[in-house]
């Protein structure tokens, strides 16, 4: 099974099929396709993104810190990164269970469950946002039963976390699934027959094998969660220092004509994105090294 969001190891091409190691190829079109790729990438992604850095480079360090690292901005980063982290942890646990169930068990409706996992990729985030609000608000479908128990989901960081769980789930499932599929059940059966307990098998055999994929999925879900906007604003509450997410703060600063602050916050978030991508690549490099070694 393949998913567009499953991260293939960078440099994979050079390692699959021994023949590919040849650097001389008779295949044409390198110039054309490479040129097209670089040109399109530059026009749509790199040049526009560079505006953020150039604009904030023109600000001067003190101004940048005042805007990008103001107490309110730092509080927003804490909310964004904190809720994304918690959501990714929850997704890592339940996503792993889901992937395990999908790979290892047969049960009626499995096809539907499998298709459903991708729903967050397909459902527009704003639709998810108003739907989740309708469900978890104090008078909503589920909220009305939670409120008497003193549990408020909507309009606080829990609501943000719920939205981010929705957004991030497929990243974990689709990252872990292929690895679980490649893992044969025989090792587990052997361990079981040697008297190992199920939790020992999980922690000693399964987890080490799927850890890189799980971490990759975690990092992807986390990165997506940090930047998420559409599904969160409806359910967040948007209180500064409490439930204001960093992307909302960018929008708020824009609406106050404070382009410098918006850009500074955007820069901090972009750097975080780069770092996250780098981390994913490192995880994969590490895992490939481990597999080879």
């Amino acid at each position: 099974m393949s998913s567009p969001l499953q991260m293939p190891a960078p440099g994979l091409a050079a390692e699959t099929r021994g023949g590919s190691r040849r650097s001389q190829s008779i295949i044409p079109g390198f110039g054309l396709t490479m040129g097209l790729t670089i040109a399109w990438l530059s026009l749509i992604v790199l040049i526009p993104l560079s505006t953020v850095f150039i604009k904030s480079a023109g600000m001067g360090w003190a101004e940048f810190v005042a805007a990008g690292l103001s107490p309110r901005a730092i509080a927003a980063y804490k909310v964004s990164f904190g809720t994304a982290f918690v959501a990714a942890i929850i997704n890592a646990i339940f996503g792993l269970v889901t992937a395990w169930v999908l790979v290892r068990y047969q049960f009626p409706g499995k096809r539907i469950v499998n298709a459903l996992v991708d729903l967050p990729f397909a459902l527009p985030t704003a639709v998810a946002g108003i739907a989740l609000t309708a469900i978890y608000a104090g008078n909503g479908w589920v909220g009305q039963y939670l409120e008497p128990l003193g549990i408020a989901v909507a309009y606080n960081p829990i609501g943000i976390t719920v939205a981010l769980i929705f957004i991030g789930l497929p990243f974990i499932v689709r990252s872990v699934e292929p690895v679980l599929e490649d893992m044969s059940a025989e090792v587990e059966e052997a361990a079981l027959s040697l008297g190992a307990r199920p939790w020992q098998i999980f922690f000693r055999i399964i987890l080490p094998a799927i850890l890189p994929a799980l971490l990759t999925g975690f990092a992807l879900a986390f990165a997506r969660g940090v930047g998420e906007y559409g599904s969160v604003i409806f359910i967040a509450g948007n209180m500064p220092f409490e439930s204001e997410i960093a992307p909302l703060l960018i929008v708020t600063q824009l609406e106050q004509y404070n382009y410098a602050a918006a850009t500074a916050i955007a820069t901090v978030m972009l750097v975080a994105s780069f770092a996250m991508l780098l981390l994913i690549n490192l995880i994969q490099a590490w895992s490939r090294k481990r597999m080879d070694g």
Binding site: Y155, I233, G237, N238, M239, P240, E244, L248, V251, T252, E255
Partner: peptide, 11 residues
């Protein structure tokens, strides 16, 4: 004190 009583700030 007023804003301490505000639970949600919509935009």
């Amino acid at each position: 004190k007023l804003f301490a009583n505000v639970p949600v700030l919509d935009s």
